[in-house]
């Protein structure tokens, strides 16, 4: 996968979470992932089409999403429930939007579908392109989360 795709998703994630959830995630070193196992307990997945095609997932550990969703909603949430899955869907939507805006600046016009959310220990993330995907890990005090991106331009570059 093209390394040009990393920064838009990294920057988009930081932008959304600092602005809407008032947390300051620390990004780790991106790496390649070949299996479908999610790195978190709840994941939002969104399909991408246009001059680059594929999918992006945002996968949160329980600790991280409870903090992030509580901050966004302005109330303490103590367990993964419907409020959490709804919040993960909207965060995925916003990160995709912010990343796609940055991709547009490097000449790639990408549109997105409506996200879906999967929750549960050891759930799978099935990318449209099959994989491998690039994982961009992040950390906040309350836990880990990661962006899991698998996209390719039409030429397959």
């Amino acid at each position: 996968m093209d390394v040009r795709f990393i920064n838009p998703f990294l920057n988009g994630t930081l932008n959304v979470l600092t602005t809407m959830a008032f947390v300051e995630p620390k990004p780790g070193k991106p790496y390649l992932k070949k299996d479908s196992l999610a790195s978190g307990d709840v994941s939002g997945i969104i399909g991408l089409t246009g001059s680059a095609t594929g999918s992006m997932a945002l996968s949160f550990s329980e600790g991280a999403i409870l903090k992030v969703a509580s901050n966004i909603l302005g109330e303490e949430i103590r367990e993964i429930n419907d409020d959490i899955t709804d919040a993960v869907g909207e965060i995925t939507n916003m990160v995709s939007g912010a990343a796609r805006k940055e991709l547009e600046s490097i000449g790639l016009t990408v549109t997105a579908a409506i996200p879906t959310v999967v929750a549960g220990k050891d759930h799978l993330i099935k990318h449209v392109l099959g994989g491998p995907s690039i994982i961009i890990p992040f950390e906040i005090e309350e836990g880990l989360f990661a962006v899991d991106v698998c996209i390719s331009t039409l030429k397959g570059t």
Binding site: T19, M94, G97, A98, R100, K101, A112
Partner: peptide
């Protein structure tokens, strides 16, 4: 108020008569 920040979408909304446009995330 949308995550759709692509220029062509902003133009479409303006042509359709939108009064204002905010791209998520926002303060």
């Amino acid at each position: 108020v949308t995550a759709e920040g692509l220029k062509e979408n902003v133009v479409l909304a303006i042509k359709a008569g939108v009064s204002g446009y905010i791209v998520k995330p926002f303060t």
